[in-house]
């Protein structure tokens, strides 16, 4: 599996990652070598095998739909890059 320049740019966009123009060829090379390596998976027929999502095949535990934690907005926003009047600030989304 060989990724070209456009593939890398597209994946970076999907992942919302800005990557330097000049490092695109290196990413293409490295990601392609990882995907080639991963391709050895294809050697095995897994037709009738059930996928394994959890090491112990346990289902997700549920809990009662009750309030157990109180979020302290001030504490949480103290570590935010930009806040004002209790709101997180981001660039304008709607003109």
């Amino acid at each position: 599996m060989s990724l070209n320049r456009e593939d890398v740019v597209k994946i970076a966009h999907l992942a919302r990652l800005a990557i330097d123009e000049q490092s695109v060829p290196e990413y293409a090379r490295n990601l392609s070598s990882i995907l080639d390596f991963v391709a050895t998976m294809e050697q095995v027929d897994t037709h009738a095998i059930a996928p394994m999502a959890h090491p112990l095949d346990l289902a997700q535990r549920l809990r009662a739909d009750a309030v157990t934690e109180e979020v302290d907005r001030e504490t949480c926003q103290a570590i935010a890059p930009q806040v004002e009047a209790g709101l997180y600030l981001v660039p304008k989304v709607i003109e």
């Binding site: 992942a15 990652l17 800005a18 490295n30 990601l31 660039p91």
Partner: peptide
């Protein structure tokens, strides 16, 4: 804009190996 905020914050904040793994996983 918001997309630029996401992309550059992540692009600057993560190192090369983390970016590689995020991209492999995204793909």
């Amino acid at each position: 804009d918001l997309e630029d905020l996401y992309k550059r914050s992540r692009g600057e904040g993560f190192g090369a190996e983390v970016k590689r793994r995020i991209m492999i996983g995204t793909y």
